[in-house]
Amino acid sequence: MSENILSEGTPVTSTSDVLTPVVRRSRADQIFRGIATTASVTTFILMGLIGTFLLVKGYDALRVAGWSFLTESAWAPDQGGAFGVAAMLPYTVQIALVALVIAVPVALCTALFITEYAPRKLRRILTAMIDLLAAVPSLIYGLWGLFYLQPRLITLSKWMADHLGWVPFFTVDDQYGTSLGLFPSSTFVAGVVVSLMVIPICTVVMREVFSQAPAGEREGAMALGGTRWGVVRDVVLPFGRGGIIGGSMLGLGRAMGETIAVTLIISPSFDAKWSILDQGSNSIAALIALKFSESSTFGISALMAAGLVLFVITLIVNAAASTVVSKSRSGASTEI
């Protein structure tokens, strides 16, 4: 009676006789499976389409520029000059990193405060407020950043340049000394403004995950004499690792793609530099937004190629993140 379902025809060896369970699905199960599969395939196809679209549209420019597209920092496709993302790409990453360096710790602490420390009533209010903030359009943040935050941040920028100038990123080499006029349109200011819109998104994700940390484990930790911080350290954070990374990556994606706020703040520069405090920054998204309406067909092709670079980088970052997440503990542990 016993037959090896795995390898038809080959003799069944008693030790490596692994069974593959046959699953017969019910009708409802099949239908749902069909819908779910279609939906996920659609997502996949959509991503393929976007990538292909960018590649096709950007092909003309990429053919002309070749690999120099990644190493050239000037941007003059319409004038028949050289063009590439070597300046925009580092600026984009710098802005995103500034945003994350601020946003992730703030979001982490906010999420922990909401789930672990806040009284129940406050918890509800804060949760609603964070959800609301996450839904505010980025233009609003951009405008507020431009008119309110920027003038106030430059004093901080100057202070940092004067006192923390020894930190590589904060070095401002200006032969005339640091005047306030040097600071308004910098990577730093753009990064801070972007961080404001990233914080709520990260917080929403992290709070959601933290609040699902199993009550049994929390109680277990408390029953051993654990403090709230002990519970956070030994139960909530290990459980929420995936959420912390996932939330950060979602924020990173948003920060790298952020267009309007960055466009409002920066003054475009095509020379990459380490220092983030002084004048001049750039980003791929901002470049596309700024140049789109005034570009020739070839210029648009170059912008599409830049968009493709952004798209690919976002994909790589997310793939890396999901690998990390899947290696950490999955949220639910099975009950035995």
């Binding site: 484990e217 109680e219 654990g226 030994d234 503990r329």
Partner: peptide
């Protein structure tokens, strides 16, 4: 809570810790 310990009706070990770490988790916690 440390002086009055508790074993729960449903087992609730710390899943991310090793078996050994689980045993001494209370020392770290307190």
């Amino acid at each position: 809570r440390r002086r009055i310990g508790m074993v729960f009706q449903k087992p609730n070990p710390f899943p991310a810790m090793t078996v050994a770490e689980n045993v001494v988790a209370g020392l770290k916690l307190s």
